[in-house]
Design a protein around this nucleic acid. Structure first.
Length: 328
DNA sequence: AAGGCGCCCAACCGCCTTGGT
DNA sequence: AACCAAGGCGGTTGGGCGCCT
């Protein structure tokens, strides 16, 4: 948004699979300049693609920090659990959850996204598209099969509906809360918000191999959606909607569109305030920070440069001079 | 060897929301 | 208030690939 209509290209867009050359062009451009207005990306890069296609390619394939390969057991269980709670979109439990989370943090519920993207936020390095594909190609059948077996059991022992059995069936990470289809009898023990936090924490602790650093994903969890961090003196750091420039301006620079990411500025390192702010946030958990995200080592060390540069394709990316974007 | 079939997944499509004019 | 463009999302498609017969 905010692009001039005159920016709009009239070219006929290419479709289909992306070539390595197109990938390289897009990747280099965004890493150096940020995407800005997506519709201007094809113009600036000379790609015969529309902005939407560029955006999708970046988010689903080129974005740094993406995990490839098969889903591990923990990820699978997380998807199953969250899907059970959230559904594919806002039509099922999501609306209730949204309101709960929003109200618990004094937020407008529209700060949240729903369904696959919501699930993806709890699986660092995975995209909503990837999760969606995994669901449709594998998990859906698995759930159907389980449901069928539960149904058989149910017919022998109880008159409870199959959906209730499925939703309340025990699972290693399944919260004890049961939801009926009306979403009205949500029994909170403990509150859902913390259950989701715990869920993402638990699964991420066991994940392997770990991405070295995933700003986008963990920032996009409750920290972003919750709207604020609290630093060590208790002052809120408002992210996304109301980023506090005064607190972090030396090291973090708000993107022109805060909904899309953050810019790692000249020094290429976050300030101690940022670190403290995260460390003191109850939802994220110190153990998660310590076990997975070795901030200073990775950011200042060669590992970080390798990671953000991909080590191969865009080795010309200069951390000292170029802005680095971290996406949610 | 080759044709059929099913699966996987990248990409497209259409709809909705948001924000600018 | 109405319109329009961009962004974002879930649903769907279709090409590529491997397996089976």
């Amino acid at each position: 948004m905010g692009c001039k209509p005159s920016d709009k290209p009239k070219a006929k867009y290419r479709k289909g699979l992306w070539s390595p050359e197109e990938d390289l062009r897009l990747r280099n451009y965004i890493l150096k300049n940020g995407h800005g207005c997506w519709s201007s990306v094809p113009i600036n890069t000379g790609l015969q693609r529309n902005g939407k296609s560029c955006r999708l390619r970046w988010i689903n394939y080129l974005r740094p920090g993406l995990k490839r390969g098969t889903f591990c057991k923990q990820e699978e269980e997380t998807i199953l659990t969250l899907h059970r709670m959230l559904g594919n979109n806002g039509s099922s439990f999501y609306s209730t959850l949204t309101l709960l989370r929003a109200s618990s943090r004094g937020l407008d519920e529209q700060s949240y996204t729903s369904g696959w993207s919501q699930i993806a936020q709890h699986l660092p390095g995975r995209t909503d598209n990837e999760i969606k594909n995994y669901w449709h190609s594998y998990l859906k059948k698995k759930v159907a099969k389980a449901e069928e077996m539960e149904g058989q059991t149910k017919s022998q022992y109880t008159s409870t509906s199959s959906s209730e059995i499925l939703e309340c069936s025990p699972s290693p990470q399944k919260p004890t809360t049961c939801f009926n289809s009306s979403h009205e009898s949500v029994q909170k023990s403990p509150p859902l918000v913390s259950q989701l936090d715990d869920l993402s924490k638990d699964q991420s602790c066991q994940r392997s191999p770990l991405p070295k650093i995933l700003f986008a994903e963990w920032l996009s969890l409750d920290q972003v959606h919750g709207g604020s961090f609290a630093n060590n003196i208790g002052d809120p750091w408002v992210l996304k909607e109301g980023f506090d420039h005064s607190t972090t301006s030396n090291n973090l620079q708000a993107d022109h569109d805060l909904g899309h990411g953050f810019v790692l500025n000249d020094e290429g390192i976050f300030g101690s305030g940022f670190h403290h702010g995260i460390s003191h946030h109850h939802g994220l958990g110190l153990e998660m920070i310590n076990s997975q995200f070795k901030f200073e080592e990775q950011i200042s060390g060669p590992g970080f440069v390798d990671f953000v540069s991909g080590g191969d394709l865009y080795s010309d990316f200069n951390l000292q001079n170029d802005a680095m974007y971290f996406y949610k």
